[in-house]
Each structure stands twice: as structure tokens, then as C-alpha cells.
Design a binder for these strands. Sequence first.
DNA 1: AATAGTTTTGCAAATGTTTTCATAAATTCC
DNA 2: GGAATTTATGAAAACATTTGCAAAACTATT
Lengths: 346, 346
Amino acid sequence: MVDQVSDNKSKKADIITVAKAARVSPSTVSRYFNHPELLKTTTRKKIDSAVRRTGYIRNRAAQTIHGIRSGTIGVLVPTLDHAIFAEVVQAFSDTVAKQGFTILLASHGYDLQREYAILRKFLEHRVDGVVLTGLDHDEAVFQLLDSQEIPCVLMWNYSETSRFPSIGADNEQAGRLIAEHVLALGHRDVACMFPPTNGNDRALARREIVINMLHASGVEVPKEWMLETVYSISESKQDAKKLFAQTNRPTALICGNDILATGALYGATASGLKVPDDVTVVGIGDFKGSSEIEPALTTVRLPARRIGQEAGNALVTAIIDPISNSVGSLNCAPEFVERRSSAVLE
Amino acid sequence: MVDQVSDNKSKKADIITVAKAARVSPSTVSRYFNHPELLKTTTRKKIDSAVRRTGYIRNRAAQTIHGIRSGTIGVLVPTLDHAIFAEVVQAFSDTVAKQGFTILLASHGYDLQREYAILRKFLEHRVDGVVLTGLDHDEAVFQLLDSQEIPCVLMWNYSETSRFPSIGADNEQAGRLIAEHVLALGHRDVACMFPPTNGNDRALARREIVINMLHASGVEVPKEWMLETVYSISESKQDAKKLFAQTNRPTALICGNDILATGALYGATASGLKVPDDVTVVGIGDFKGSSEIEPALTTVRLPARRIGQEAGNALVTAIIDPISNSVGSLNCAPEFVERRSSAVLE
DNA sequence: AATAGTTTTGCAAATGTTTTCATAAATTCC
DNA sequence: GGAATTTATGAAAACATTTGCAAAACTATT
């Protein structure tokens, strides 16, 4: 009797084990899970008890080879180390989990070759759909997606002309909003701090538009005020201190994202500068903490949570209802947020 | 001819399609992937080309039902919204990816019932191993893990007596280090700000030891200085401002983590208080940015990256070499980091 | 050129499910 | 109480692979 119990548990139970224990056929057990309404209440009870006794857990791998959905979605981000991506992923994951999907997560660290390799791995696992971050990807990635006919959305960025539905913010718009603000405040001596742009179409789009807007207003950013700083508070604080130590310093600093801006704010404080009296500092993103930092950061909000949710819903729709090709791009509009770190030039 | 090509791509290729295209048997194609050294160079080339032409992608689901590893690891965290967990997950994911594993990620939002449900889902997907966050889990979770005989490690926290190997920091030690420091500086009027402790054994362990240490030195924390604040910079800034507005205010504030401490620092600044001259503020965690904030935060470093890596390596070992039960707990020791936000009582 | 030995390949069974089709059981109706 | 329906269950084929075993194709040896 005791042996019996431990036997049941030792060899992992499959559907046949359960069937025997319940004295029904395997088909019936299968129906118990997939179409319970077809079973008599009494058999349902028998199987219920058998499942419990045997400790049976369904095998999705075995289901998946029947062309049934795997219930997984591949999520591919550059990195989780940036809180903002973590937030998007969290929102995405929560959204699709409600519909029974689990996410396969991987990061490529801005290496587009790795992205391709990871995508292949996702496909080996027969994910039901894929989310990629940003608009720019290797042509091979797009072709693979096409040939496998698998639902895909691009999240975080938005563009009308993206190769797959894109759900996110328009970085050009974000850059424009912040540049307009700084120009409207009357600044002419403007420095810029942006992350490296290789493999990062988001940063590139922002920087381009900012430079262009400034240029259009007759403001040129001298080379020594054009900082390329990796995404890190310590680096940006460092670089900001160097910038502020130059003999002539800018009256405004536009940062490519709020992390850089946070470091710049700390750098200004460490240099004995008052923000915004001595220098205006602005960011892009409205990350967590940007509204609480002293002084609160003027920035452009990119609605991370919303983007994650919308992307999740869109992808699930595309998976569940693949015929009605109803999923389109969505512009989660960025929004200018004026706080205390920017001020009109005296 | 053109039809031929598009045909190949339209119906997704399986191993039989490839076999036909290469004029070999399916078994040979299988061996091409799993034991290529058994094949003649010429057949290998034939299959190589056939795979390319047909766009075949291996089906891991079909492999998995043969008892072959799925190549996935289930990772279960409370949330990704806390940058610190995102960092651990990133390090973990990178580590196991090098060994060919992909992670299934889910978060339970501190709800232990959901944790059980998610674990079941992981097991349905036949993950090769599981990582849980923290030491405390529902008994049902432990039993399920036991009965399925699946490798598991608990990460983030460390305890000698944990039910499964635990790889992480000892929160008691962390709490002790920070409390000792504050006491050594001579503070007797001490306030505490900790996150809600339900479903969060980490926070609980830290708070307990801090209170005990203070008590042992004759310092009692009055109720109105005992703050329970959710993990959020805005909430903690808010609560800190209220605290500092009280008629008699503490000379030191111990925060349960660096996010709370960051908010507290902003709150102090907003209240016109100078840190550390007017009040000492300390945290636990040494999160990103804690060393750059002005004033730089005195805290206890919990080595997130290292924990993620060690947990990854440990779990992979347990998966690849399950017999030699060689995976044990590992104390990634917390380390006191003195910076500028704490000072001796004048 | 025949034999023995080795390497390479194919056949067929196995894996854990789902699903179609057929049969058995239960229910309804007269 | 038996025929006609309806409902519930089982048998067997299918899914995309892997693998043990045996046959075929090579090499080396005499």
C-alpha cells in the first residue's frame, strides 16, 4: 500500500497512468482536460481523484506537437538592466499571463546577430508569437518571421512604416518636444548627452531630431558639448562633471534619457551648480524616480506600462485570431512633462 | 520551380520534408542534429543544404516528449518592477543562456497562491529546472517540487537551513551591518522605514534584526517613527517628509532598501534638511545609482549580479549532472559600504 | 577476389498526447 | 418494453521526433 503510493510518484505519471488509476481510457482523461463538458459527472470525479492521487501534470510538449498552441510568447529585449525595459516586460507579461500565456525571455545586449540566434531558439520552442524591441532588426530576422508566419509585434517604438505592427512611442516626437521646450526657454548654448547609437534605433532617432531642431533654430552644438555616454548613472555623472568643468559651460543640457539626466543632475550638484538656476537639465523617458528627484526632472513621458499592455493585447489577438489580420501599429504618444529642472534663461 | 520554393516554405518543414529533400531517411536527419559525428561528410553536406532550402527549424516539443531536456528554466520572481530583481534575472539569464538554456519568466506579485499556479504551468512546460525568489514559499510549492524531482534553487536570500539550496545574501547579516553602523555613530533617536512584510521574507528578516539590535543597545523605535512604506520612491519621499515634519525628529533613518532610502534622501532635501548634518539616512542593497546620488548613500551591498550568476551556474550543474547532488547553498556575503549620507551624531 | 571488420544508414518501435470514428450506454418517446 | 435518439466512452491513427537494432556500404587484409 505504501509502496503503491511511492510507486505512483516515483515514475512520473502520464495520461495512461491516470487512465488506469481511474479505470477509463486515455482518451477520456484527455477529454477531462480539454472538453470536460463531454464527460459524465461521475467519470469526471473518478478522474479528478486519479489525477490527484498520481500527481499527474499535463505535458504541453506532447500537446504542442499536435499543432496545438504552446502557450508561450517569446520576448526579446536588449537588456533588463535598464529599469524601463523591465517595466515594459513586466506589463507585457502580466497582460498575456491573464490569457494563459507564459513568456520566454531573452536579451541580446544590442547585438543583432545574437538576436537572430535567439529568435531561432524561440521558434524551436514553437512560441505562439514574438515581441521584438525597437524597429530596426537584421533582415534575416524579418525573413525568418515571415517564412514561419508567426505573429510578431515590435514594441517600444512607433513608426507608421514599420515592417511589423509597432506599438510604442514615436521617438522623433519625443525628441522634438524636449528640443522645443529648451529652445522656447531661450537657451542657445546647448549641450547634448546621448547613449551610443549602434544597434539602438531609439537613441539615434532622438538625437537626430534634437540636433536638427536646434540647427533649424540656428543653434549648433560644438563637438566638445556633444557627449556620447553609456547608459549608466555613474558614467553620466562623470561626464557631466567634466562638461561643467569646461571654461565655458552650456546653459542647458539635453539628455537622451532620464538615467543620463539623473546622473547629470547629480553631476551638477557635485560641481556646485544649481539646477535650474545655473543650468537647465532635461531628459527623455519619465522613468521611475524622475518626478521625485531634487529638483524634479523636466522630461518627456514614454508610457512604458501602457506600451507593454497594448503590445500584449495586440499579440494575443494576433495569436488567437490570426485570420482577421486586425492588429495594426499604435502610437502611444509621448507627453511633455515640465518640472523643476528647466528654467528660462536669465 | 518558383512554386516549388514557395511550397517548401508554405507548409512548415518537418524532419521528413528535409529527409526527402536530402534523399536520406528521417533517422539520418535526426542524427545530423544530435550526433553529427556519425555521418559521412557527404551526407552531412546534403542534409545541410536540404535544411537550408526547406527552412527547417527543429521542434523541441517533439524532442522533449522523448525525455530529452527541454532547454528551458523557469524563473519566478515577485516582480520585475524593482530594478534589483531585473538585475538578478538578467545575470541569471545571461549565465544559463551560455549553456543553451532559455528562461521562462513569470512574476507572482507577492501572491503565494499565484506562485503555486505558475509553478504548475512551468512544470507543464517541462522546464529542466526552477528558480524561486526568497526562502519562504507555500508548503504545496515545496511538495510539488519534491514529487516532480526537479532541480530547484532559491535565490536572492541565503540560509543554512533552507529547504532547497539557497544562493544569495543573508538578510539578517545585512540588517545587522547597517544597524551596527548607525549605533556606532552614536544615534539613539532612530526611525525605520520598511516595506510591507507579507509575502516578503527578505524585508521581514531585515526589519526584525534591525529592531532587535537597536533594542539590545537600549534604543526603542517609537510607533510614529516605525514607517511601513511600499517600494516606491514617491511613497517614501512622501512618508519621509511627513516624518521630518514631526515636532521631534529622529537623528537617523534606517531604510529597508535603497529605493526607500533614495526617496527619503529626496524627502530630506525637500524638507530643507541637510544629509548627513541634520539627519543620517542609510539603506540596504546598494542599487544602481546609490553611489552617485547626492549625498552618496551609505548602505549594505547585496551582490545582485553575482547572485544571479551563481544561481545560474548552480542550477545548470544540478540539471546536467543530477546524480552527484553537488549543489549546495551559497552565502554571497553582504558588505557594508560607507558613503556620505551617514555621520556621527554631533 | 574473397573475407573480416568497420562505418554509415534505414527500419520500426517508442514517446505522451489529441482527435476522428465507431460503439456502447443511457435516455426519451410511443 | 422496445425502438429511436442522444450522450458518453474507447480504439486507433496521427503528431514530430529519437533510438536500438539490423542491414548495407565501405575498407583493410590476406
